[in-house]
Amino acid sequence: MKQAIERGKPPQAAGEAAYRPSLAIRLRRDKWLYLLLLPGLLYFALFKYVPMWGILLAFKNYQPFTGFWKSEWVGLEHFRLFFANPEFFLLLQNTLILSFLNLVFFFPAPIVLALLLNEVRRALFKRVVQTMIYIPHFISMVIVASLTYVFLTTEGGPVNELLLQHTGEKIAFLSDPDWFRPIILLQTIWKECGWGTIIFLAALSAVDVEQYEAATIDGANRWKQIWHITLPAIRSTIVILLILRMGSVLDNGFEQIYLMLNPLNRSAAEVFDTYVYAMGITQGAFSYSTAVGLFKSVVGIILVLGTNWLAKKFGESGLY
């Protein structure tokens, strides 16, 4: 039993090589763990890796009825079409700017909100606020876009009516390219920020209350407590979420952008997702959108693994 405890521990840096038992022993020792692993493995094999041949569609001219085998191979034609597009760099730029803004403004928002919620002493108040800020998550994007229109239109929208009274001018929020990104960001924060706190609040619930009490006795003020106790408790969750988020840097959430895009703000609004959609509806282009998806995935995985590597450099446990 004592030995089992030793082995159950993660290999420590120092005596790792000396302690590592042979493969056969390790397999036998962990048989229950492998049993637990099995359902999940089967799931990934069946529903994720069996359909993986779909990636090959990127190199074909796939048509649903013709089927996979009969559709012609076109090699890198779809990639060529994508990269040779004169708008490629505009799309890349718009996509990256939006992702970057999301990372800077949206990503920390739920963390801050969770920290503030964690500071609330009144349980009832906290619970009511939590429930209220989850609501926007359930409102579909179509409705969010419609509400945005109602609020911001220059024709009788309440925001512009107020502006008109106070400044004597209206602002064409919905058609001005400069306003496109702030509006998208605001929509995202409004819709998902509250919902995003859940995972941090779960992590925070693991923090020992005694630590705060000890800190208080030591004379640490609230900011110090947040900095030295609360934040470290959710640090690894933040890092993991950040790493995973890097995988979708080239995704901007199609529906939202598509709904807010119009001819006057296109210079800021057109991103990969909307562009692929435009190609997709006219072409029914399974292959083309698969190719663009593949490009995004390759970039995503490089960023995920790169960020993970960086995190490890800084002493975080990262994904593994």
Partner: peptide, 25 residues
């Protein structure tokens, strides 16, 4: 559930094998 899943897996393999013929004109 495991039993269910593994039988399901076998069925999938069989199903996939026949897909290619099903996709012919």
């Amino acid at each position: 559930r495991l039993v269910l899943l593994s039988s399901v897996f076998a069925a999938a393999m069989a199903g996939c094998a026949s897909d290619s013929s099903g996709n012919e004109p």
